[in-house]
């Protein structure tokens, strides 16, 4: 789906979202009830660079500075973080972290943050963008991943065919919407036939002050122990203080 099509379907009442530098987009949009939301995004599967990260983070900082607590919708079609020596030398980790921090700060400051993944996102770029929002929604055809299976095969020194076979029995490592949703990363997936604007407006009303992705992963059976381990640690922490 192109960003233009996506914007039309998300905001039938209108929007002023325009393309920015480095494959970004930004602008205001109107919900069907007349309320405003702020939109920022990455397009065309652009690898996440320091330039994109500062462009998006700068936008979001200005939105938070506005003080209106307008909901923020992130439209994401990126790739992995950009893999160059130059970006690593300049401290790409700080740029990705800065973006994740700014998105998180917006959430903590009272802005509802929802990411709509309509293309790809992988590895560190996935963490800094789609996963940094309070809620992640995927659209049919979206392709989130940590690392593709051939690369996992190379690093773990396991045959690709074996990994493909194992991926049929566990959602714990395979790329794609279904396994990631099972582990709790994705709240919901929208299919082509869905009414995107209705669904977005519903998603924006959900309470999202705490991170419940591990409970979701437990309910869906894709991450069976994370939530209970985190709870046990918290209970023991209280005891250890005594």
């Amino acid at each position: 789906m192109t960003p233009v099509e996506l914007l039309t379907r998300l905001f039938p009442s209108g929007h002023e979202v325009v393309a920015g530098p480095f494959n970004t987009l930004a602008g205001r949009a109107i919900l069907t009830d007349g309320a405003a939301v702020e939109v920022v995004g990455v397009t065309d599967g652009a690898p996440l660079s320091p330039e994109i990260a500062t462009e998006l983070a700068g936008r979001i900082i200005r939105i938070v500075q506005d003080g209106k607590k307008t909901p923020i919708v992130l439209l994401i079609d990126t790739a992995s973080q950009r893999m160059t020596r130059r970006d690593e030398m300049l401290g790409l980790n700080e740029y990705l972290a800065h973006l994740a921090k700014v998105v998180t700060l917006a959430g903590l400051s009272g802005h509802r943050t929802v990411a709509v993944l309509y293309g790809a996102a992988a590895a560190g770029a996935f963490i800094a963008t789609a996963l940094a929002a309070q809620t992640l929604i995927t659209i049919d055809g979206a392709h989130p991943s940590v690392m593709d299976l051939p690369s996992i095969a190379r690093v773990t020194k396991l045959p690709l065919q074996l990994l493909e076979k194992k991926a049929e029995t566990t959602p714990i490592f395979a790329p794609g919407v279904t396994p990631l949703a099972a582990t709790g990363a994705v709240l919901e997936n929208w299919s082509e036939a869905d009414n995107f604007s209705n669904r977005l407006e519903t998603a924006l009303t959900l309470e999202a002050s705490s991170d419940t992705r591990d409970t979701l992963g437990e309910e869906r059976g894709g991450r069976k122990v994370a939530y209970s381990v985190a709870l046990r640690v918290a209970a023991e922490f209280e005891k250890a203080a005594r």
């Binding site: 972290a97 921090k101 940590v146 714990i172 582990t183 990363a185 992705r213």
Partner: peptide
């Protein structure tokens, strides 16, 4: 970074760590 044998759980753990860590700082 992320343990590739548990790639999805590891990726989410990083994201959850970021959010929880920033909660501590906040």
């Amino acid at each position: 970074g992320v343990r590739l044998q548990e790639a999805n759980a590891g990726e989410l753990a990083v994201s959850e760590t970021v959010r929880a860590l920033l909660g501590v700082r906040a």
